[in-house]
Amino acid sequence: MSTGKFPTARLLRCYALEGKYEFLRLLRTHSFVLPSLLFPAMFYLLFGVVLGARRGGGELQAYLLATYGIFGVMGVALFGFGVTIAIERERGFLTLKRALPMPPGALLFAKLAMAMIFATIISLILATLAATLAGVLLDPAQWLLLFAVNVLGVVPFAAIGLCIGTLVSGQAAPAIVNLVYLPMSFLSGLWMPLSVLPDAIGRFAPVWPSYHLGRISLAVLGQEDSGGVPGHVAVLLATTLGCFLLARRQLANAEQVGPG
């Protein structure tokens, strides 16, 4: 249905309501909310606050603030899209949504808005822990830029999650997402600096989109050459576009084949 059939006010209301109910639905899903919000904070408390204080490394605590923010963002995007899309596609919910008199793209907008809201919450939790317990000192501009990187960083991983959700069953989706999420986080240096990991991991780290988003965050803190930021952004944009096009093709093929 063309969006031209919707008055602007009604169109905005459709998007707002869809986003609101998607957020509330996942907020009531404890298996999603608790790991998404608690794991980045718990890891930062352990490695950034406790171990960072023992090593006396303010630089390490700032590093982990940036990388655990990316770790949290990845989780809400991959699970929020990968698992929910797979389940909704398998149960025919996506087909039902297409049949309803609602603007196209409202469902994806709602899921993206949901992921960005959770990314905002994660960023605020980590910033509070870093500023109060870890003693991380950043300029106001750095705090804002770090926050922006986290929230906008949802997009490429939402596209990856969308791609996964269109390729696998609802039952398999959680396992597949974990197989992507956890190794990618470790191998791209989000859990600990690449300098303390084997050289082979560091050489292959640029393969992962999480590495590039992490480098952008570290550039905000001055721990990475800012001259490489355009290249990292280009990789993330290419990842987003490629995964989105693949997911779109899968959904189109599934629609042609039909639910049977």
Results as ranks from 00 to 15, higher is better:
I85Q: 10
P103D: 02
I125C: 06
S188F: 00
S31P: 09
A205T: 09
L241K: 06
I164V: 15
L179M: 14
G227R: 10
D225F: 07
T29F: 13
R98D: 14
G69E: 01
A110Q: 10
L45C: 08
T120V: 11
V177Q: 03
G242P: 05
A238Y: 05
F32V: 08
L65M: 08
L246K: 06
L182H: 06
T8G: 12
L187Q: 02
E224N: 07
T3Y: 09
A172H: 11
L46R: 03
F109V: 11
A62K: 12
G170K: 03
E59P: 09
L138E: 06
A53M: 11
A219G: 04
M42D: 09
A53K: 15
L17P: 11
F109S: 09
A173S: 08
L182D: 09
M114N: 15
L37T: 05
G202P: 01
V154W: 00
A205S: 09
Y15S: 00
A106M: 08
G58Y: 00
L137Y: 11
A200Q: 09
Y63H: 12
K20H: 14
N150Y: 15
A110F: 07
A252C: 08
T29S: 13
Y211H: 09
M42K: 10
G260M: 12
V151L: 08
R25L: 11
I125T: 04
L213G: 05
L218M: 03
E18Q: 13
G161L: 03
S226G: 14
G153R: 01
E88W: 13
A106T: 12
S210V: 00
A77M: 04
L182K: 06
S169H: 03
Y63Q: 10
Q142C: 03
E59W: 06
L182N: 11
P103E: 02
F244G: 14
L146P: 01
A66C: 07
L26W: 13
A127L: 14
L17Y: 12
A238Q: 05
A131D: 01
K111Y: 00
L34T: 13
G56A: 00
A106F: 06
F109D: 03
L182Q: 07
L190K: 01
R249M: 13
R215I: 08
A238T: 13
L162M: 14
I117C: 15
T95A: 15
L27N: 10
T240D: 01
F47C: 03
Y68E: 04
I70L: 01
A62W: 05
